[in-house]
Each structure stands twice: as C-alpha cells, then as structure tokens.
Amino acid sequence: MFSNKTVNILIPIISVVLGLLSGAIIMVAFGYNPVAGYAALWNGAFGDAYFLGETLRQVTPYILSGLAVAFALRTGLLNIGVEGQVFVGWIASVWVGISFELPMIIHLPLAVLAAALAGAFWGFIPGILKAKLGVHEVIVTIMMNYIALYISNSLVRNVLTDGSDQTDKVAKSASLASDWLAGMTYFSRLHWGLLIALAMAFVMWFVLNKTTRGFELRAVGFNQNASNYAGMSVGKNVVLAMVISGAFAGLAGAMEGLGTFEYMSVKSGFTNIGFDGIAVALLGANTAFGVVLAAFLFGTLKIGALNMPTEAGVPTELVEIVIALIIFFVASSYMIRWIILRFKREGK
C-alpha cells in the first residue's frame, strides 16, 4: 500500500499540513480566526496581479538558495553558508552593475557571472578545507557568513560609496528589472531572474542525473568510502559540490542585487534567504523539481503573511513559526515514517 517512494513524497506533504495545522491552533489559542488568517494569507499572495508578482519575485531567490543547499546535500555536505554566499554574490553583481558602461548583452551576463563566481569562491574555501584538512563544513560556513556580512558592509561604506549606507542603482544595462513584467503586475518588483532560477533548476537536474560527474557527486554523497574504492576522488567532488552550490547561492544574491533592489546597502543582519534555503531544500527532498515547489510554497507564505496583520490582525511572525515547525516535522521524518508504518501494519 505504501511503497518507499510514496512515503518519501508523503513526508513533505504531511509536514506542511501539520505545520499549517499547528499555525491554525496557535491562531485559535490567541483568539484569532484561523480561517480569516489563512484567507488573508491567500489574498496577500494571490489576491491580484501585484501580489502574484511579488510572490513570484520572492520565489526567485528561494529557488536558487534552495538549489544551493540541495546540491551540496546531495554530495553529503550541509552548506549553512548560503547566506554568506548570497551576500558576496549580491555585492559582486552590484559592483559590476555600477562600475561599467557596456551594452546590455555583455553587461548583464557579466554581472550575473560575477555573482556566481563570487559565490563559488565563498563556497570553495569551506570545500577545500573539508577536502584537504577534514574541517567540518558547517562551522566554517557559519563563520564565512559573518565574514561576508562584515566585508560587504565595509565595501559598501568604504569602496563602493563615500561613507554612504547604500550604493547607486545598477546601470540599466545590468538590470534584470523589466517594465513589461512590472506593468503586467501593477508595478510589482517581478523581474527576469525567475527565468534564470528555473533554468538553474533544470541545470541541477541535468548535471546530477544525466552526467558522469553528477553520478560521482551523488555517489560521494551516498558513501565516501565506496566512492573512493571505486576510484573516484572524494576530495575533488567535495570541492566541486561546494563550488557549484556557492555559485547557485551567488546567483540568488544577483537576483536581489540586479532584480529586486538594484542596489546593495549596509545590512545590520542576515537576509535569511540562505537560511530559508535550508528549509526549501529539506522540504523539496533535495531534488530540483521539489525545490521549485517548496520555494513556491515558502515564497507564498512569506509574501502572503505581510497581508495578515491588516486583513486578519494576525502578526506576520506567525508564518516564521509555521516554517520552523515544517522544518521540524521534515527533520523528524523518522516519527512520520514510524506512524505511517504503524498504519500500514494495522491495515493489513
């Protein structure tokens, strides 16, 4: 009745349902109407063309940061440093965007590429430390997040501007923003980056599933010793996985730097694009298609939540709790698996 594959698909669905249910219970506990609350969320995400545009705009970096986390996880690495890689990608894209005057056909790809390279470099450091010295990537990537945050702030203040808190806008020729898309969605900040994000999801699927290199990357993720015995270089694949993961994350930064905001500013803390990417990847079961779906869900929740205080009086932060609970349920899949198996046994 339940094959292993169905269980794997059921777990994320059950987790989302449980997460939303818990959110409803919290709303009831604090005297809100959960139906009105979730209706407000729905309207805030899909109510009209503007909200739809903003939702898709939020989905764009989530797809990329989700892909970044998922790609590394497929090789058995937890990249918590997506946040920092987003920062360096963001600042690199803006740097190229404001420094040159070039035709769009060169300028835009150059800015996007700069972001990917910056992110890749930020992923390379933990990758090489892991491969050569066996240093745990989780701690190194956490530290790299803070280094990225402070360096990027310092660059904005001292290099890209004269002590200002915000850079100039990137040149038109490096911008992903589109008057046509904005016009269609009542001037939301929807931009062409969505196409890049979807293309990257395809790239990840293709690389992992259709190339020899992808096979090696996945093999290392399954069993390092067996891969080593089969003649694959574990170290090389670890570094490569972190570099590609970092490149995806850097692109997520470019989405913000060239699309949504078109500038970089001094940040007091993290954007959470990278941390949310962990949730996206986990919920999407680390597959390209799953990540796109999960990014869509979290983008919807985040943007829809902004409408909850005005329409239903529910604080926006409720959604943060719901997302945290969804991660818990996915992480505790052992529990869900166990319950499903109980049902299976009783059903027989």
Binding site: I80, A279, L325
Partner: peptide
C-alpha cells in the same frame, strides 16, 4: 541534529 538546531533558531 544540525537541521533540528536550525529549526530551533527559526522557532
């Protein structure tokens, strides 16, 4: 454990 810890931070 890492994922659970991340969820703790969000929560």
């Amino acid at each position: 454990q890492v994922v659970s810890g991340v969820a703790i931070n969000f929560l």
